[in-house]
Design a protein around this nucleic acid. Structure first.
Length: 675
DNA sequence: CTACTGTGAG
């Protein structure tokens, strides 16, 4: 009871006389308080107490430091971990098995396996615990099994995971909570959500981590609805969520763009005392950005920045938030601030780069005309071993920056969306420009992690109409171009109505067998826009052959005449067109080009959303909400038409396109006509 | 009195 009231060294010192009277040692008291901090306080608080303790000349003992290591490892705080490692060496504890094991664990958790192995190899005495820390036990116990399962998930090897599952059953470990939980995690990260759920449901005893693994499995696996259902169930069962639970739920909320639920979670974060948890706050930044509440995201980000707790992830979340919400100017401004503040811990990485490229693409700045982007790209490709590509980007950049200098990304005044009013504060802008900042990139970027920045780059080149360059860019990529890269090219071909390039892109794309039928629809629409009807039909047949039609929903294509209810659908459509025209709808032909007016209107009328809405109207109960999922972005004409349809039919219509939800009601859309 | 495992933000 004495200890519970002390949290600073001064308080401990004040309590000392009383403690000594009770027969407690001075050291013991400090160590007990430190342990309390390590288990419950933020790492910084724990470190501060440790420093105070040293000032009070309390000699640390081995297990003080092991607690500190655990605190640092749990939060993957490598920098602090290294500091404690130095303390440990300075105090002559490096020979201790427990301490050394904690160091191995720290490096392993922070994904520094080389460092982990170095410390491990230098250990004179090793026990099973130490072996487990490098996940290489010879006679595996249950903890070794638990440690091996995430490795299967990392490798994406369901086969290896299953064989370990079998082994754990033979060794009679499989019903241990930790083993079962690790199995849930392994199955869900390998995409076997149904199996994960089965293991989860069969668990006799579940703990928070079990719930977290299952909920996050759904959240990361794309089933946000199920993630939220399970989250609600967890709360209903009276289990107190942790920061991990919250982050998974926030992620799911962002996916659903469910702002109301997002706000509830934000409140819950405060109630749970998690407002100082940077990771949680970062997930909220991303959630608000996806729900188009950039202002709220900025508030949170600025709060973190002012407290000095913003991390690289925070900056990336905010820059990405701006980019997603078409605030390209603000995104680039924040990017410049990031570079200018000269904080080594917060310098751009490949995540940042993706958002920056998106921002440049959106601003229609000359491709590669932005010297920041270009420099970052050159650096990245050179590091990936793509020297010829780096050279090419460099040449292009040199050519196009001659006229634009650094100015391509200069603030462009008020940006298009009202939500962009919240641009970064001006205080830290000074000195953000110029070559000095760019030099900071040297050595600053890690080699490309995924395909995202390649597809962003292809999108950038493609939108600017530089389709040939985009193609050359893909050919020169040091990595194998994936679905998203060719998808971006195909999208650009749609914008610029380049059938030839579209065919080239589609050929390569379809070899990769995308599960999403949207790309076939995209190609079909490109043909349709060019009036190439036999080709439209060919793509449709191709899709049917590949069974790409989604079976759980009714799927429609532009110009679809194949549905069993087609007569009723087309009749309904005609009726609707009459009604909405009477209500003031004027077809907007800007998304269909180069065909005669009557053909134009015919194309517009038979756009797949309109077909789907008509089907929804003829096949659902009166007054029911109609839900539509679109695998491309909704076109301007369909958007307008849907507003009118919601007005004349009194129905709510919810369209979810690749970008976001559109909630149509009484002639208005939740997106405020901005998407 | 301790160490090793399972969930984790952009």
């Amino acid at each position: 009871m004495l200890l519970e009231t002390c949290s600073t060294a001064a308080e401990v010192l004040r309590a000392l006389p009383l403690a000594i009277k009770h027969g407690l040692h001075r050291e013991y008291l400090f160590h007990a308080v430190l342990k309390g901090h390590a288990q419950g306080s933020p790492l910084e608080r724990t470190m501060a107490f440790f420093a105070e303790m040293r000032l009070a000349e309390v000699r640390p003992v081995v297990y003080n430091l092991t607690y500190l290591f655990k605190a640092a490892a749990d939060r993957s705080n490598l920098r602090r971990g290294r500091e404690i490692h130095a303390q440990l060496i300075a105090n002559g504890f490096s020979g201790n098995v427990h301490a050394a094991t904690a160091v191995v664990n720290l490096y392993a958790k922070c994904r520094r396996m080389v460092d982990a192995r170095k410390v491990f190899d230098r250990m004179l005495e090793r026990d099973l615990v130490a072996w487990n820390a490098v996940a290489a036990g010879e006679r595996p116990d249950s903890i070794t099994i638990v440690a091996a399962l995430p490795a299967c998930a990392d490798l994406g090897s369901l086969k290896a995971g299953k064989s370990i599952h079998a082994h754990s059953i033979r060794a009679e470990f499989s019903s241990l909570v930790n083993v079962a939980t690790a199995l849930v995690g392994m199955y869900s990260r390998c995409g076997a959500l149904a199996t994960a759920r089965l293991v989860f449901e069969r668990m006799r005893a579940k703990n928070v981590v079990s719930w977290n693994s299952m909920i996050d499995g759904y959240a990361q696996g794309g089933d946000a609805e199920e993630a939220m259902r399970l989250f609600e169930q967890m709360l209903a069962e009276g289990i107190k969520p942790t920061e991990v639970t919250i982050m998974a739920a926030v992620h799911a909320c962002a996916d659903l763009q469910d702002l109301e639920m997002g706000k509830k979670l934000h409140k819950l974060v405060a109630e749970l005392g998690l407002s100082s948890n940077v990771s949680v706050m970062n997930s909220l930044i991303a959630m608000y950005s996806r729900c188009r509440r950039v202002e709220t995201a900025v508030e949170i980000f600025e709060g973190l920045r002012q407290r000095g707790t913003a991390t690289l992830v925070s900056w990336n979340a905010m820059i990405s938030g701006y980019a997603q919400n078409r605030c390209g100017g603000a995104a680039l401004e924040l990017f410049r601030m990031m570079v200018a503040q000269r904080n080594d811990a917060v310098q751009p990485d490949s995540f940042t780069l993706v958002s920056v490229i998106q921002a440049v693409a959106e601003l229609s700045a000359p491709p590669l005309g932005n010297v920041y982007v270009a420099t970052a790209l050159v650096d990245t490709y050179a590091k990936c071993g793509g020297v010829p590509l780096a050279r090419k980007v460099f040449d292009l950049a040199a050519r196009s920056t001659r006229s634009t200098k650094c100015g391509a990304a200069a603030p462009r005044g008020p940006t298009r969306s009202p939500s962009c009013a919240s641009s970064p504060p001006a205080a830290t802008r000074a000195g953000a420009r110029g070559a000095a900042g760019i030099r900071r990139y040297e050595g600053g970027l890690r080699p490309c992690a995924g395909q995202d920045h390649y597809s962003a780059m292809v999108d950038l080149l493609g939108r600017a109409g530089r389709l040939r360059e985009a193609w050359e860019f893909i050919e020169a990529m040091p990595a194998v171009a994936g679905i998203s890269v060719f998808g971006a090219l195909l999208g650009a071909c749609k914008i610029h109505r380049d059938v030839g390039m579209a065919e080239k892109a589609a050929e390569r794309l379809f070899l990769l067998e995308p599960a999403d039928g949207g790309y076939h629809v995209l190609l079909s629409n490109i043909y349709a826009a060019a009036g190439m009807w036999p080709e439209v039909a060919r793509v449709r047949r191709d899709m049917e052959r590949k069974a790409l039609r989604k079976n759980e929903v009714h799927t429609f294509f532009s110009g679809d005449t194949n549905h069993p209810l087609k007569e009723r659908i087309y009749a309904k459509l005609e009726e609707l067109m009459e009604e909405i025209k009477a209500a003031g709808y004027v077809p907007d032909a800007s998304s269909v080009h180069d065909v005669e007016a009557d053909v134009q209107e015919q194309l517009l009328i038979t756009h797949s959303e309109k077909l789907a809405i008509a089907f929804g109207l003829v096949s659902s109960a009166a007054g029911a909400t109609i839900q539509i999922r679109k695998n491309l972005r909704v076109c301007a004409d369909c958007h307008t038409a849907t507003k009118f349809i919601s007005l004349v039919t009194g129905r709510e219509i919810i369209v979810r396109d690749v970008q976001r939800f559109h909630h149509f009601k009484d002639g208005r859309c939740s997106c405020g006509d901005y998407w």
